[in-house]
């Protein structure tokens, strides 16, 4: 076991890493601002500097880069932690945050709102969030219909629900006006933080934070759930309640993440694995580490997304492009034996 001092240092690193990446990302972007100019804006905003600054400088640093980086961090942390939790819950290191169809459901909800409400952001969030949760509830009802082997039934429920919503998304894409709605749907489905504003942050940060805190709080229970239903119950766990609660928190954070940033793949799969490689599989440590790495990772990838070209590369594309080869490397390194 770690000594108290070591624990404190460890905790400090966990918290500081995402904060540092957020800070760094304030300096990165297409708009030409010197380090000094960015620092001046920060000094001005925190009341250390009195200055008459160009409004665009303030907006770039404070209203564009900062909310975007914060949102990226929360979204990354949420996706990573729900991925890690589902991996424990389903006793399978290869499952990801959308195993129960939350992304497919949210994608459908968002596409529907784009068509019905002319892409009005509020409705897009609302529908994405609602349908994301709805999809999980549906998987869950299918999964718990038979009481014998709930885990496998849950996975099957997820497969069914994902299939239904994916085909519904295709149907909507088919119906959508190819010149007005289709591009928005495609853009949304690929994921982006480009539209991040403080309003979006307020809307989505609450469910994501509740989800993350909930999973942190019950992280030891995730260890026990990963022993399988029989053993976990024999160890004194109320399986149904504990599992439902874990799924509830994980869904809350994933659905909210997906509804502000679109479908960002691979974070929920790859990040927990990096965590496992670094600190092992004990969820007591793994869960906070996943949040920290996930948050930093997404902010970094988003920095790439908005600087590589004049415009925005959708995040989902980059996370998959970076995530997939990295995953192959991990598998090769461990020869498929786990960490």
């Amino acid at each position: 076991m770690l000594t108290t001092m070591k624990k404190k240092i460890f905790l400090a690193i966990l918290i500081l890493t995402p904060l540092l990446t957020i800070f760094i990302s304030l300096f990165i972007g297409r708009y030409p601002l010197t380090v000094g100019e960015v620092l001046t804006v920060l000094g001005y905003k925190f009341g250390f500097v009195e200055a008459d600054l160009p409004l665009n400088n303030i907006n770039v640093v404070w209203n564009i880069r900062l909310p975007r980086a914060i949102l990226g961090a929360i979204v990354g942390g949420s996706l990573a932690v729900s991925g890690a939790s589902y991996q424990g819950l389903f006793r399978n290191p290869l499952v990801s945050s959308d195993i129960l169809g939350v992304c497919a459901g949210a994608g459908f909800g968002a596409s529907l709102a784009i068509i019905l409400f002319q892409s009005q952001p509020f409705f897009v969030y609302l529908f994405a969030f609602g349908f994301g949760i709805g999809a999980v509830v549906l998987s869950y009802l299918i999964g718990f219909h038979y009481h014998t082997t709930p885990t496998i039934m849950l996975v099957l429920g997820g497969v069914i629900v994902k299939a239904i919503f994916s085909s519904l998304i295709s149907l909507l894409k088919y119906i959508a006006d190819p010149y007005e709605h289709l591009p928005s749907i495609v853009f949304w489905l690929m994921g982006s933080l480009a539209t991040a504003r403080y309003e979006d942050l307020l809307l989505a940060a609450l469910p994501m934070t509740i989800g993350m805190i909930g999973l942190i709080a019950m992280r030891w229970r995730l260890n026990i759930l990963s022993m399988g239903d029989k053993e976990a119950q024999a160890l004194g766990i109320n399986i149904f309640f504990t599992k439902s609660l874990a799924i509830f928190f994980a869904t809350l954070s994933t659905a909210a993440a997906v509804c502000v940033s679109g479908v960002i793949g691979w974070v929920g799969l790859v990040i927990p694995h990096i965590g496992r490689m670094l600190v092992g599989n004990n969820n007591i440590v793994l869960i906070p580490v996943s949040i920290s790495i996930g948050a930093s990772y997404l902010v970094l990838v988003d920095n790439l997304a908005r600087t590589l070209t004049g415009s925005e590369i959708p995040l989902g594309i980059l996370t998959s492009l970076i995530g997939a080869p990295f995953f192959i490397y991990l598998l090769k390194k461990t020869k498929g034996r786990g960490w």
């Binding site: 030891w220 053993e231 024999a234 092992g280 599989n281």
Partner: peptide, 30 residues
């Protein structure tokens, strides 16, 4: 029940490489 009866299964799948101590600690869940 778990404070009265403990269970040693016939076979045990090992989904994650937990440390021995982590496994034994799970006995304290109840």
């Amino acid at each position: 029940i778990a404070r009265k009866l403990s269970y040693i299964p016939q076979s045990h799948e090992k989904p994650f490489p937990f440390k021995v101590m982590d496994i034994v600690l799970m006995g304290r869940a109840s």
